[in-house]
Amino acid sequence: MNARIFYENSETSQEFRCAERPLLAVRGLTKRYGERIGCAEVSFNLWPGEVLGIVGESGSGKSTLLSCLAGHLAPDEGEVVFATAEGPRDTVTMSEAERRRLARTDWAFVHQNPRDGLRMGVSAGGNVGERLMAVGARNYGAIRGRALDWLERVEIAADRIDDRPRAFSGGMQQRLQIARNLVTGPRLVFMDEPTGGLDVSVQARLLDLLRGLVREMGLSVIIVTHDLAVVRLLADRLMVMKGGRVVEQGLTDQVLDDPRHAYTQLLVSSVLQV
């Protein structure tokens, strides 16, 4: 498809021109648990710099889908083609070694519970540095410098660098998990309810942080949540899932303000107003 951008402004950066090729192209992704459907025939493209929200109630298949996309679960059918530096590759059929290499370089995964994404017995600096060391960083001073830089970016005081995450609040743990994931400059970040376990006030700070990082790093994000307010503020596009299938997708505000599917209408109208 041709990019149909007619307005060129000297101030605008290159990265927001329509990319020629999606970063992630998902086709017919299906995962069954015996007779039961985890997710079925999910297809979509994710473009560089886009934030895609996936919403649906518990059991709708959104977490299964995320696990299949991130390579944590092997799907029964379908492909997940990622635009690697060497060209598009189906991550479902690539070797596990390659997939895991991807997972610690170009990809990142932010868990709902920071305990699942952090090493609780390792200092904050060690947590942030691990991905760097995993890809071959061997200079302690440089690793520590990068860790300090990232702690600052996620608003954790520098003097906490040698503290273990156990001593951190829930919001700090979640920010540390984000720093640990983004330190290697990934291009695609999977997030599973990243604001789920947090107080509302802490959520806002995290959302602002995520928006800034997405913008500055040009990240593409797939974020699973059941919180429609979160996707409205964070996601460019939205997919609504029910019974393992995508029932509706489109621009986030369009899906939320002009929902067409009965389930989406129910979902949107069920949100409590504050």
């Binding site: 610690r104 691990e130 060391m133 995993a134």
Partner: peptide, 10 residues
């Protein structure tokens, strides 16, 4: 995947 060994030394 031996990054973890260096985490120990770090």
């Amino acid at each position: 995947e031996y990054g973890l060994m260096h985490v120990k030394l770090y």
